[in-house]
């Protein structure tokens, strides 16, 4: 299957380095979240992969080939870069027909992706009349047009309503389960956490992390246990001998930091502490990401641009 390979990729615009010696690989069969603040180089990297911008040095290939050498590339790689790219005065269907024609994709496929993205009823309306969410769906439809093995979406959830966001999530899951290579950029942590299996994190054009999502969170955020009891005194005295400390929260529950729910549950049970609620308080992607960027600014604190 086809993977995206980025090797020592660097792109400079004038004196600004948008992508800085970036190396990572996006393998098929899983959803890779492409994370980073705005301006971190995510979109630039995608444009470089598509051969739209020329790298200053390094390379980006798809299944070992430069994008520009792919015959009928839409059949190999589908990309959503900018949902505004469709011309206002064309109908959604004509927009897709034009793209399909250049890669000899039959019009039947146009109607399929229109139905798949829920744009069927709006297909013959001009793009001018589309909402931001519908334009986003049209962009995703264009990416799916050639039934490609590699799908690259830049902020696909932008402007989508909650229903649309769930739909994108399920779509990404399905594409990955079908064995496709899926790279999805976002600057929204909770959103990314809901669909990504793996993360590639950028900061100022450099690679900050390339790891499975769960491992990323676990390595950065120490787990805690959330507990509610009718007898806090008994709870504290049961935990103290084992080095755990329960901290009271405002809403009446207690948190035991740096602890696993298995341990705390057993201890409380052995001591006969009445438990009303017991839950693992796992770290969120957001916490892990902020921890990473905090560490990063520490190391790179230089008088450069913010």
């Amino acid at each position: 299957m086809t993977s995206i390979d980025v090797h020592d990729l660097t792109k400079e615009y004038g004196t600004r380095r948008a992508v800085d010696h970036l190396t990572f690989r996006v393998p098929p069969g899983r959803v890779t979240g492409f994370l980073g603040p705005n301006g971190a180089g995510k979109s630039t990297t995608m444009r470089l992969v598509l051969g739209l911008d020329r790298p200053t040095s390094g390379s980006a290939t798809i299944g070992g080939r430069a994008y520009a050498t792919l015959p009928e590339p839409l059949r190999h790689v589908g990309a959503l870069l900018d949902a505004q790219a469709a011309h206002d005065s064309r109908t959604g269907r004509d927009h897709l027909r034009v793209l399909a024609a250049s890669n000899r994709i039959p019009d039947r496929r146009v109607d399929e992706v229109l139905a798949e993205t829920g744009l069927g009823p709006a297909a013959t309306r001009r793009v001018r009349t589309y909402s931001l969410g519908m334009r986003q769906r049209l962009g995703i439809a264009a990416a799916l047009l050639g039934d490609p093995g590699v799908v690259m979406l830049d902020e696909p959830s932008n402007g989508l309503d909650p229903e649309g966001i769930v739909w994108v999530r399920q779509l990404l899951r399905r594409l990955a389960d079908e064995g496709r290579t899926v790279l999805v950029s976002s600057h929204l942590m909770n959103e990314t956490a809901s669909f990504a299996d793996h993360l590639v994190v950028l900061g100022r054009g450099r690679l900050l992390a390339d790891t499975p999502m769960r491992a990323f969170i676990e390595s950065r955020v120490r787990p805690a246990v959330r507990i509610r009891t009718s007898d806090p005194v008994a709870l504290k005295s049961a935990l103290a001998p084992h080095g755990h400390e329960a901290v009271e929260r405002k809403d009446g529950h207690w948190t035991v930091p740096h602890a696993r729910v298995d341990d705390i549950g057993r201890l409380a049970s052995a001591a006969g502490v009445p438990i009303l609620e017991l839950a693992a308080d796992e770290g969120t992607l957001e916490q892990a990401y902020l921890d990473l960027t905090a560490a990063e600014t520490e190391f790179t604190a230089s008088p450069q641009e913010a």
């Binding site: 739209l52 839409l74 011309h87």
Partner: peptide
């Protein structure tokens, strides 16, 4: 000029990179 608005050219050149 229709190609030079809102990234339309990128879409065109992604479909036909030559």
């Amino acid at each position: 000029s229709a190609e030079f608005r809102n990234g339309a050219l990128r879409l065109s050149l992604a479909a036909v990179p030559q």
